[in-house]
Write a protein that binds this DNA or RNA. Structure first.
Length: 252
DNA sequence: ATGTCCCAACTTTTGGGA
């Protein structure tokens, strides 16, 4: 099974790139964040024409998450309990429980949105901690947190900022501590493997990136993996998202 | 430190968010 996660930064603006990417890479499951669409706007019909089922959870202007699958799509759950923003959707696809997550940005360490980000990560941890021990799980998304300074092009630039702070890194570590493997890092232990570059300042050309998008899975699924990588080519060209997809190839 | 992009609307410019 080939699985990917991608923050598309508006499915409306990105649909030509997303369709092209799906046809070229033929993922079995694509986890999407920041569709910025209502369910009515989401391209269910166009996806069906290329062989995919989809489930979407979105309110329109902000956020919006989806699961796109050609290996089945059942038991869809939308939203984290107590959260009214469209940042979480899960489904059963090809024998695995898959999750598409869009973690709050946080904005600044003294902003209420940062406390919301920490609460949200804690809620996600609780959901994942409650899974059955033998359940195959794939958790993907834009976590808006770097795991370590290896994921940051220049840690000095981010002193005192979100995405690198100890509390959010601890909250992300607590998610991994439920028994999940970081597929991208396990295949590339020493490479930065950035997944996001700011649109401003020629950041992509200069290599100013962060690794904030992840595919996590249970150890048995990780043992079946043959590859995991960032598709940097998707960040190039006409009207790219500011995020690149993270892709994993599994023998399960 | 911020050179961009995307969205909505009291819409043809501005403000919020990332």
């Amino acid at each position: 099974m080939k699985v990917a996660t991608w923050n598309v930064n508006s499915m409306t603006a990105r649909w030509p790139r997303v369709r092209e990417w799906i046809e070229r890479h033929e993922p079995d499951v694509l986890l999407v964040q920041e569709t910025k669409q209502t369910d009515e706007q989401f391209p269910f019909d166009a996806l069906s024409e290329v062989g995919y089922d989809a489930a979407h959870y979105g309110n329109g202007r902000w956020n919006g998450v989806a699961v796109i699958s050609r290996v089945g799509l059942d038991d869809v759950q939308r939203g984290l309990e107590g959260d009214d923003e469209a940042r979480f959707i899960s489904a059963s696809c090809g024998g695995a429980r898959v999750y598409s997550c869009y973690v709050p940005n946080g904005r600044a360490l003294d902003d209420p949105h940062y406390a919301y980000k920490l609460r949200w990560l804690s809620s996600l941890r609780d959901v994942l901690a409650g899974r059955a021990p033998d359940q195959a799980v794939i958790v993907g998304g834009d976590f808006n947190v770097t795991r370590s300074d290896l994921d940051v092009y220049d840690p000095r630039v981010f002193e005192g900022a979100t995405h690198v702070s100890a509390r959010e890194r601890a909250a992300l570590a607590a998610i991994l501590d439920t028994g999940l493997v970081d597929l991208g890092r396990s295949f590339h232990p020493d490479e930065p493997s950035y997944t996001w570059w700011d649109y401003r300042n020629g950041s992509f050309r200069r290599g100013w990136g962060l690794r904030i998008d992840y595919l996590f899975c249970d150890p048995a699924t990780a043992a079946s993996a043959t590859a995991a990588y960032v598709d940097r080519d998707a960040r190039k060209g006409i009207k790219p998202s500011d995020h690149a997809p993270v892709v994993a190839e599994l023998n399960s």
